[in-house]
């Protein structure tokens, strides 16, 4: 056995006489042992498996854009770990989360309100707004791709509209398949080959199956997701 095998054993929690004998003589494995044992412990921690909610990315982008140009501060505020922070320090941290107070311009607000009303009338006259919308990043097999998936929640499932960019239509003998997943449980949301007007239907809700991902599937009898992932929101909890 090689060091890689013993290190794998350390991570998996195995403890054999052979491993102990190796550790007694191998300085390299001795050096990484605490890190691997610590890593094994962390794998049992939900901190390693939970993920931020879908809306956080857009929320952060919106917040930064509204905050103005990057680099407006000269340095990162520092925290002295040995001293209790003052209330001002807490307020400094919390302040950016609060919109700046400005004197409202009544005419500007009325203009914005009118524009919103017009936009809402336009949207509702063409198609109801989705209940949710999520940006989907390119997966390992198509990192250049991206998509926006809009969803409408209904009593019988979820209507899904996919607008993908950076993908080619599925080649002959293959098709794309959208999946909604909760951990290892995967529900197909339907298949497609072309990328125009992709409208799909899933029998489950995104609240129960938060992860959305799209695979490229060969035409065969295997009904499980293939390993070719072209779009993926990533694991959501």
């Amino acid at each position: 056995m090689r060091c890689e095998d013993f290190q794998s054993q350390l991570l998996s929690g195995e403890s054999t006489a052979e491993l102990q004998a190796h550790l007694a003589t191998c300085e390299m494995c001795q050096a990484v042992q605490p890190r691997l044992v610590g890593g094994a412990s962390l794998l049992e921690d939900e901190a390693m498996w939970l993920a931020p909610g879908d809306e956080l990315e857009n929320s952060i982008v919106d917040m930064l854009v509204s905050d103005g140009a990057a680099g407006s501060d000269e340095a990162i505020p520092t925290v002295d770990d040995d001293l209790p922070p003052s209330l001002h320090a807490v307020e400094d941290i919390a302040a950016p989360m609060t919109p700046a107070r400005r004197t409202p311009n009544v005419w500007a607000l009325l203009g914005v309100a009118a524009a919103v009303v017009v936009a809402l009338l336009f949207v509702t006259s063409t198609r109801s707004a989705p209940d949710w919308s999520v940006d989907v990043a390119g997966g390992p097999d198509a990192p250049q791709a991206s998509a926006v998936v809009d969803g409408w929640n209904t009593d019988s499932g979820t209507r899904l509209v996919v607008e993908a960019r950076g993908l080619e239509p599925a080649p002959d003998g293959f098709f794309y398949e959208l999946w909604l997943s909760d951990g290892p449980l995967h529900i197909s949301g339907g298949t497609f080959t072309g990328l125009d007007d992709v409208e799909l239907w899933a029998a489950v809700s995104r609240g129960d199956f938060p992860r959305i991902w799209i695979t490229l599937e060969p035409i065969d009898e295997d009904e499980s997701p293939s390993s070719v992932v072209v779009l993926d929101t990533g694991k959501q909890s």
């Binding site: 917040m63 680099g71 501060d73 505020p77 950016p96």
Partner: peptide, 22 residues
């Protein structure tokens, strides 16, 4: 706490954004 952790990520991005010049 999940919501506090999300708040931390959000604030961290804001601080990174503001401190980008450094």
């Amino acid at each position: 706490d999940r919501s506090l952790a999300e708040e931390a990520v959000q604030q961290a991005f804001l601080q990174a954004w503001r401190a980008a010049a450094s």
